[in-house]
C-alpha cells in the first residue's frame, strides 16, 4: 500500500501542474487587469505598477517565473492586498475554511448515514418517503439559495443566530448546515441504496439465521458494508464542499479562503487566485488519496499492490 501511495502522489504532480497552467492562462484571457479602476490611471503610473509586478514581461516569461517561485514555495505578492504575500493571506483564511469544511463533512457523513439507514430499514414506509423528499430537496436546491434563506429566517427574522462572523458555535451553525445540506442528501441516498442491498445480502441473512441481535446485524454487518460507497464519495464530496464554501463564506461573511478567491477573481488579483487554485487542487488530490487508502483499511479485499 505504501508504494501505491507514493505512486499516487507522483501521479498527482502532473495533475496539479496542468491545473496550475490552465488556471494561469485562463486568468490572463479574462478581460481587464489588477490595476483597472473606475478612473483610468495615468499611463506612467500604470507602467510603473506593471513593471513592479512583472506584468510588462511576455506572458510565457511570467508563467515560467510563477512556476519557479511556486516550486520554491513562494506564491508571490498579492496585487490588491498591498504588502501581503499570497501565502500569508491564505494561511489566515485556511483554518477557517478547513474548520467549516471538515465540520460539514462529518455532519454529512453522520446525519446522511443515519437518515439513509433509517430509510432502508423502513423501505417504502412514510419515514422512507420523508427521507427521500428531504434528500431530493437537498440535492436540487443550490447553496446560494439555501444559505441566504437560512440567514434570512434564523438570523434576520427570528434573530436566533448571528448572521455573520466566525468563532462561536452559534456562528458556525448556519454556515455548516447550509454547506452540508446537499452532501447530507447525497450521502443519505447513497447509504439508503447500498443499505437496502446489504440488508438483502447473503451474509446478513447468515447473521440473522445465527440469532444475532438486530442492532448487531444492522450496524456491524449491514452498515459496515453499506458505508463503503459513501466513503468513496468523500473525495468528490470534499471538492463539492470547497466550491460550496466559496458561496457560503461570502453569504455569511466568513474570513475563509473562499472569500479571498471571489474577491481575487473579481479584482483580477492573479496571484491570489492562483494561490487559492493551487491550495484547493492539492487538497482535493490528497484528500482523494486518503479516501482511497481509507477504503483499503475498511475493506480487506481491496489491495492496491
Amino acid at each position: 500500500m505504501f508504494s501505491y501511495a507514493i505512486r499516487r502522489l507522483l501521479g498527482a504532480v502532473p495533475t496539479i501542474f496542468l491545473i496550475v497552467t490552465a488556471a494561469f492562462f485562463m486568468m490572463r484571457v479574462a478581460p481587464g487587469g489588477p490595476f483597472d479602476q473606475e478612473r483610468t490611471l495615468e499611463a506612467t503610473v500604470m507602467e510603473n505598477l506593471n513593471r513592479t509586478f512583472g506584468l510588462d514581461k511576455p506572458l510565457w516569461e511570467q508563467y515560467a517565473m510563477y512556476l519557479g517561485n511556486l516550486l520554491r514555495g513562494d506564491m508571490g505578492p498579492s496585487f490588491i492586498y498591498r504588502d501581503m504575500r499570497v501565502h500569508e493571506i491564505l494561511a489566515e483564511g485556511l483554518p477557517v475554511s478547513m474548520q467549516l469544511g471538515a465540520t460539514a463533512l462529518v455532519l454529512a457523513l453522520v446525519v446522511g448515514s443515519a437518515l439513509g439507514t433509517v430509510a432502508a430499514l423502513r423501505q417504502n414506509s412514510r419515514t422512507d418517503f420523508a427521507v427521500i423528499a428531504v434528500a431530493t430537496f437537498g440535492i436540487t436546491v443550490p447553496n446560494f439559495v439555501v444559505a441566504p434563506v437560512l440567514s434570512l429566517v434564523f438570523a434576520v427574522m427570528l434573530g436566533w443566530l448571528p448572521a455573520q462572523g466566525w468563532g462561536d458555535w452559534n456562528q458556525m451553525l448556519l454556515p455548516v448546515i447550509a454547506l452540508a445540506l446537499p452532501q447530507v442528501a447525497i450521502v443519505a441516498r447513497l447509504i439508503r441504496g447500498s443499505m437496502i442491498e446489504a440488508l438483502r445480502s447473503d451474509h446478513v441473512r447468515t447473521a440473522r439465521a445465527y440469532g444475532l441481535p438486530a442492532r448487531m446485524v444492522v450496524v456491524k454487518h449491514a452498515l459496515r458494508a453499506a458505508i463503503l460507497p459513501a466513503v468513496s464519495y468523500m473525495g468528490p464530496a470534499a471538492a463539492a464542499l470547497l466550491t460550496g464554501s466559496i458561496v457560503v463564506e461570502q453569504v455569511f461573511n466568513l474570513p475563509g479562503i473562499g472569500r479571498y478567491f471571489v474577491n481575487g477573481a473579481l479584482n483580477r488579483d492573479y496571484t491570489l487566485v492562483m494561490g487559492t487554485v493551487v491550495i484547493v487542487a492539492t487538497f482535493v488530490v490528497v484528500f482523494n488519496l486518503i479516501v482511497d487508502l481509507l477504503y483499503a483499511v475498511l475493506d480487506p479485499r481491496v489491495r492496491y499492490d
Binding site: 451474509h203 441473512r205 447468515t206 439465521a209 440469532g211 458494508a225
Partner: peptide, 26 residues
C-alpha cells in the same frame, strides 16, 4: 425476532447454498 434469536444459531442452525457470499467479507 427477540425470542426466535434464542433458538436460531443455538439450537437450530443453517448452512446455505452460497459459500462464497454467506460469510461477511469484511
Amino acid at each position: 425476532p427477540g425470542q426466535l434469536n434464542k433458538l436460531r444459531g443455538a439450537k437450530i442452525t443453517m448452512i446455505f447454498q452460497e459459500p462464497m457470499t454467506s460469510l461477511d467479507p469484511l
